[in-house]
């Protein structure tokens, strides 16, 4: 079971209050008409599915109901850091 720190409630709460919401930093294409079917497929269906430290989204379903970012190891499940949306837009950029 994970103990997750909600950056909005500023409290560490049991995982059962939260729901995972998929890989982070998947940005909707800026010009949807201008891109190829391959690029659409990559945006809609293809995923990094990284083995190691991985940025993902969680939502505090039974709390403040806000979405936020979590960096977690998909090998050990250890949570390395959490951040509110807008704090960063990619793995490297702050």
């Amino acid at each position: 079971m994970l103990l997750i720190h909600c950056p909005y409630c500023k409290e560490s709460r049991d995982q059962s209050e939260f729901s995972p919401a998929g890989e982070a930093f998947i940005a909707r294409p800026k010009s949807p008409e201008g891109i190829s079917d391959e690029e659409w497929a990559d945006y809609v269906f293809y995923r990094t599915n990284h083995k190691g430290n991985h940025w993902e989204q969680w939502v505090h379903t039974n709390g403040c109901r806000k979405y936020f970012l979590v960096e977690r190891s998909t090998i050990s499940h250890q949570i390395l850091q959490v951040a509110p949306f807008g704090a960063r837009n990619s793995e490297t950029e702050l």
Partner: peptide
């Protein structure tokens, strides 16, 4: 399944 990605061969008790 657990909703999160994992390679750990274990999941949540819930």
């Amino acid at each position: 399944i657990d909703g999160y990605n994992s390679y750990a061969q274990r999941g949540s008790t819930k």
